[in-house]
Amino acid sequence: MLNYIWSFLVVFSFVCAALLGNTEALSKAFVDSAADAVQLLLTLAGVICLWSGLMKIAEKSGLTNLAARLFAPLLRRLFPRLDKNSAALEAITMNITANLLGLGNTATPPGLKAMRELHALNGNSDTASDEMVLFVVMNTASLQLLPATLGALRQSTGSAAPFEILVPVWISSACALAVALSLALAGNHLKRRSLCPSSCPSLR
């Protein structure tokens, strides 16, 4: 998809520059944009490395697991058909917790594992199960308690209060998540699919 979007942006800019007579500015941008990118990367480099380091400590000390235990009861309600000791629910819990703490990289491996487990429970069908829809939708709605990178970007561009947007971010994510969950659950309800088409021993 980015193949088309990116090419379109470049070609469209060229056409606009030609029509509007901004060709000189356009050639200047060729040089400047590379330097701008490096500047942005440097800003990101500091904060990404710093927070990855700190969150590694949280992971090793069991703080992440502690948080996961906190969210487990909530997730159990969202996925009532999964056994509460199942590998699927455990992977889902780790994934959602990591996302909540802003650990995008740490969230992906348990996320993929959750999909594998759900896929097996779904009899390896090529149609998504209710649980899969719900899980992926939760991953496409961002719920992050402390957006550290966002704060750093704001600070580096001279914000007087980089984290003043925190409460609006929470409200906005909560609304987006609520809409995503409602639609996913409503869709699941409309056309219920059994978790496992054939006989499946791993269900309670």
Binding site: W6, L9, V10, F12, S13, F14, C16, A17, L20, N22, A25, L26, K28, A29, F30, D32, S33, A34, D36, A37, L40
Partner: peptide
Amino acid sequence: IFAVGLLKSS
């Protein structure tokens, strides 16, 4: 950033 730079300057 390159594409955005072109978009802005053009």
